[in-house]
Design a binder for these strands. Structure first.
Lengths: 242, 242
DNA sequence: TCAAAAGTGTTTTGTGTACACCCATGC
DNA sequence: GCATGGGTGTACACAAAACACTTTTGA
């Protein structure tokens, strides 16, 4: 659909036929967050559109008429990361008229949290790569806006609900956890206060093991209490305060 | 589109043609909140679908190919309430396959806040009426879920940003304001603590007038500081904590 | 003079923040 | 033995919650 055709429809607004209402495509875009090397990262692919030559874009696809919004998101995640059981949350829809150069495409944005170490599969196929969130300036489409909006949502959620653990391996030390929070929130945290706050939340189990391969005193390892692992199917409305 | 056609497409999933992707309609649904008689209310219309005979539904419409999501929402609000300059916020999209009996319709939910007294125009045309939010049990489509989700979002926002004033007339007393908060949050509040908290936020101006027509000692009247009135066009990302 | 709500402060409790020392380990 | 992070507690400031009496007005 060209810009010209779009304008034509605008002029004909009074006699819109029912079929015209279907001249809008719907996509899902996934902000796939990962955590590695003490940085929050996002999975991006090089845009194949001429208009955005050289820019990266989020992973997305048109929604098929026979799949739910979440189904479409899980499909994309599965295709791009090989992972199945991931945290996924819808953020909102983006639907500016001119957001997509090839026509009217409304997109529904999701973010998901995955353990970057579990991935490492189809990576770097067609320029699919992890990018530090902080270093991104310009993305294709309105994807920078979508990313920023999702990051903001993540920052809000992370203080209330135990979702960050989706970004970590099964076992982790308190230092790793704190560094993750610092990466997500973009601020430094006091170690003693952080540990106090986490211990009050009662999210973790001391598994009786310690780090190895660290060039200093190893820390204890913890894991998330199993009952707090968020099964994607279970989530309904927003969870309340922890 | 019948259920049978849907299943057919599912079977043909491998050879989906581009045009199939457009076989999805997109609508906007508005949860229009008002406040009257010490109750939070929502504007509903009697559903004209046989499947939902006797049930009420939110106000919505299909999105036109040439209008933004917000433009569509404002159009609905204008059509149904006659009001222009209202608070409007997108919540999220709802897209279950079977949410609409006549085909695949993905809807994007907005809530808006209006002064119920300013309205009173096209009301009760075709069974368009205000309903107390607390007394609603079943709505057409998935509109109860949408309403609940929007209410939850409103409850979260109301503590952080000065949006409740969109539900009140220009001048109001602190008692009215407190009763409004109580209606939205569904809890009782301590008067002294409430007044302290509001005064700290520094949102109000004492306009030097007092209530009249009250059968008791009249309270002072206040108005929201003009610079805090949220112009719909200005809002971008989520506002931070107050 | 009575009913109804306005208006107003203090105390207690909990939460967030700032901050420093000794300990265990790897090198 | 030294560098590195692990592990821990206390003091202060601020915010939230509980709580009661006097004042003003209309009826």
């Amino acid at each position: 659909m060209t810009e010209r055709e779009l304008r034509l429809k605008t002029a004909e607004i009074e006699k819109i036929s029912h079929i015209d209402y279907f001249n809008i495509a719907i996509s899902v875009d996934c902000v796939i967050f990962g955590y590695d090397d003490k940085e929050l990262k996002v999975l991006l692919i090089k845009s194949d559109l001429e208009e955005f030559a050289g820019l990266f874009s989020l992973l997305g696809d048109l929604i098929r008429p026979d799949e739910d919004l979440e189904t479409a998101s899980y499909r994309i995640l599965k295709e791009r990361t090989g992972l199945d059981d991931v945290y996924l949350e819808q953020v909102q829809a983006f639907g500016s008229i001119k957001r997509h150069p090839s026509g009217r495409v409304i997109t529904i944005a999701y973010y998901s949290l995955i353990d970057i170490k579990h991935h490492k599969m189809q990576l770097s196929h067609n320029e699919l790569n992890w990018h530090p969130v902080n270093e991104l300036k310009k993305l294709a489409f309105d994807h920078k806006l979508i990313l920023d909006t999702c990051l903001l949502r993540l920052q809000q959620r992370v203080l209330e609900t135990p979702i960050v653990f989706n970004l970590l391996p099964e076992k982790f030390s308190l230092r790793e956890l704190q560094e993750l929070y610092e990466a997500i929130l973009g601020i430094g945290l006091d170690r003693r206060n952080f540990r106090k706050k986490i211990s009050i939340k009662d999210w973790l189990i001391d598994i009786g093991e310690i780090e190895n391969d660290v060039p200093h005193r190893p820390g204890k390892l913890y894991k998330l209490k199993p009952e707090l692992k968020i099964k994607p199917a279970r989530r309904k409305l927003q969870p309340g305060k922890s």
